[in-house]
Design a protein around this nucleic acid. Structure first.
Length: 418
DNA sequence: TGACGTCAAGATCCG
DNA sequence: CGGATCTTGACGTCA
């Protein structure tokens, strides 16, 4: 069983993706952007390896306009060596990677042109996986598409168009239930005819379950039967509703209790879980630590090193509670630990505790900074206390210092990102 | 024709 | 000038 996250990272150095406007596309620009993006991907993969994350979705934005004719570069040739280095790291570490074309890739469209572009888009995603040397267990996750006032015909059109696809695409393709049009029951019906493996998405199911009374486990088991050995371990998507946003919006972070309830109701551990959540890798590490068999408190201490200044900023009592909690090195109080973290992240610290955290972080530099930096920072603290500049500006200043003086401990801190 | 969702580019405004 | 805060863009469907 593996847990993973999608596309982007929070708080990991040198992992930003770049793109450009379609009107600005030219060969040289694309070469620069792709080179940069491959560097970011390489850094993400290395981060995953260091943090024992074995499931990962690669962004469709890796190659700007990857399936648009304006990009006529043979990028898989030009960057063959770069792909190979990344792909080798993926294979060596036993990482499973996937891709997921968005809602605008519609294979069952009633417009021929749109179908053609959808096929080009699937070809693009397949090329990326092939360039990395990813096998059949590396999946491309696709939704069924539109309804066009006649669902039966639309489903038939999906099946018909699927059959037109090349074998190398079909090898990677899997289908997923969505929150509006196609329920897991309907996706399974398509799978019955096409033998495409089905991804169960819990939040989509919650919002679009027809009148199904069966629980998640029932549908996960149904989907399980669509996965053949060569497709790898059954994969599902897990996300939680953001309580403040509209139905279907992914939550900021995965809430521990709700996740554990879902996890404990699973009838098998032989399953890969892709988390869809705003805080990305941060929740992936959290959830891994919540369910790991290897209950070593060092894992929580490492997490504490990343969270501590953010918790100090938000709620001093939580900060003290966690220090107490982690004193007994024979225990592994992950549930309590993340419970306090989640509580504290919901709190908003007052000016005093924000300043307190700022000064704690500043403590890393005060012996090595120049006199000029010192005077400048103290003036900024004064401005902050007088409400002349905001907290994010202060954090930016500290982050730049962390980069300049290469303070690894701070560079890994969630303080700058949460 | 605008809303939907997502992210970064690009534009604009401010001190 | 740097930094913060909008607005736009790229995609297709649906009301």
């Amino acid at each position: 069983m593996n847990l993973g996250y999608a596309c982007l990272t929070e708080g990991v150095m040198n992992t930003k993706y770049k793109t450009c406007r379609i009107k600005n596309v030219n060969y040289e620009k694309l070469a620069k952007l792709i080179s940069h993006n491959l560097w970011s991907l390489e850094n993400m993969i290395n981060y995953n390896i260091e943090n024992n994350i074995k499931l990962f979705r690669i962004t469709s934005d890796l190659i700007p306009f990857g399936s648009n004719p304006v990009n006529d570069m043979d990028w898989e040739d030009v960057f063959r060596d770069r792909f190979k280095i990344i792909g080798d790291n993926i294979s060596k570490s036993n990482m499973r990677v996937s891709m997921h074309p968005g809602q605008y890739t519609v294979l069952n469209s009633n417009t021929e042109d749109v179908v053609e572009r959808a096929i080009m888009d699937l070809e693009y995603h397949t090329k990326v996986l092939e360039a990395l040397g990813v096998g059949q267990e590396g999946k491309i996750v696709l939704h069924i598409g539109g309804v066009y006032g006649d669902k039966k015909a639309a489903m038939d059109r999906f099946i018909k168009n699927y059959k037109l696809l090349n074998e190398n695409i079909k090898k990677h393709l899997v289908i997923e239930n969505d929150d509006k049009s196609y329920s897991v029951k309907e996706v399974l019906k398509i799978s019955e005819i096409t033998n495409i493996p089905v991804i169960f998405d819990n939040l989509h199911h919650k919002l679009n379950k027809e009148s199904s009374q069966e629980n998640n486990s029932y549908w996960i088991n149904e989907c399980r039967n669509t996965w053949n050995k060569k497709d790898g371990t059954q994969k599902i998507h897990y996300s939680q509703q953001d309580p403040l946003k509209k139905a279907g919006s992914h939550s900021k972070t995965i809430e521990s209790k709700e996740f554990l309830k879902f996890f404990n109701e699973l009838e098998t551990n032989d399953i890969d879980i892709m988390l869809e959540v705003k805080d990305k890798n941060i929740s992936a590490i959290k959830c891994s630590n919540l369910i790991t068999e290897d209950k070593d408190i060092k894992k929580l201490e490492l997490e504490w090193s990343r969270y501590k200044y953010k918790i100090l900023e938000n709620d001093h009592k939580s900060y003290l509670d966690i220090r107490t909690l982690l004193k007994d090195k024979t225990k592994y109080p992950a549930i309590e630990f993340y419970g306090i973290i989640e509580y504290a992240l919901e709190s908003e610290g007052d000016k005093g505790s924000k300043t307190n955290a700022l000064m704690h972080v500043w403590g890393y530099f005060k012996k090595q900074v120049t006199e000029k930096e010192k005077v400048s920072f103290m003036k900024k603290v004064y401005d902050f206390e007088k409400d002349k500049i905001n907290i994010n500006r202060m954090k930016n200043i500290l982050f730049k210092l962390a980069e300049k003086y290469n303070e690894k401990y701070l560079l890994n801190s969630y303080y700058f990102w949460l």
